[in-house]
Amino acid sequence: MGIKAFAMKPERLETPLDEQTVRELRIGDMVLLNGLVVTGRDRVHKFLFGKTPEELTLPVELNGLVLYHCGPLVRSTTTGYEIVSAGPTTSARMDIYEPWVIEKFGIRGIIGKGGMGEETVVAMKNCGCVYFHAVSGAAALLAKCINKVVNVWQEETFGTTEAMWILELEDFPAVVTIDAHGNSLHDDVLRESEKVYRSFMGDNNG
């Protein structure tokens, strides 16, 4: 599609992802994601929490797939759906559910923004899963990296924003900010900013 997002040369990845591919990624890597992803935000996570794949009839096999924290802006057309804008939502809200979802459903990658908490970072390390940080707010650009809407699940019950959208990506740009080795760019930034924070609060003098 020729969307010019990254000038530096990123690596192209194709879903479903296997463990080895995921383990080779490191924080700071720029990637272009291709293939199937499913969206899931607050309602989908709450629904999956405490359940196993065997108990559910899901529209797609989640094992090896990438889960996108996104509530897309969608327009109905005569032939189906058009994704108008579709950037990431704040991932921290999914933290209480995510270790379960990664472990039980075999998710290999999460696309979101803002990073995730310690327990999720540990689950990613243990299970072999990475966090792809999408360009927050770049929703028009990112929508153009969605080739087609394959299916939608629970639109009636969860609503359009909260439904699970099964999408096909083409060269969707993202940065690995949590890898499968326990490293988190967000933790690094937090630690560095904390030093400055403490100097302002006068805690350095004591």
Partner: peptide
């Protein structure tokens, strides 16, 4: 790089 994507967006 991300800011360039923001501007392109």
């Amino acid at each position: 790089e991300s800011l360039s994507a923001v501007i392109e967006n």
